[in-house]
Amino acid sequence: MASNPYFSLAVLFVAALGFGLAPLGLAKLWGMVFSPPKPNAIKNSIYECGLESKGDAWMQFRSAYYLYAIIFLIFDVEAVFLLPFAVAFTGLGVAACVSMLVFVLLLIEGLAWAWAKGVLTWA
């Protein structure tokens, strides 16, 4: 076993594990001896606040918000790319302009698709 070339790695792995876990264990031990918890229903409540939380945290959001986020992303990404393009516009060649046009058309296609699907109409 000791002749295995990976033996030293295994020893180091165990040492590293101990190095990480020992302080956690000691902290837990210290906590158990010197600061034992006194839990109660109010202390264990999910949200610490003077007022009781109302309702459930597992509420449902309308999926329409997700579509709005996606469409927002279209314009957001477009702006990120368009700005440097516009700044360097005078020094750019035809190829750069065409590729930018293709990019913008792709995004417009996405928008047109969403529009056709009726996403922009709030239901």
Partner: peptide
């Protein structure tokens, strides 16, 4: 309150506020 050791009751406690004060005290760790 989960990170605090000391509660300084700094002012008038109205009867409307008292339950919240006691609740916050309960939420503090020993």
């Amino acid at each position: 309150p989960r990170q605090a050791d000391l509660m300084i009751i700094s002012g008038t406690v109205t009867k409307k506020m008292a339950p919240q004060v006691v609740r916050l005290y309960n939420q503090m760790a020993e």
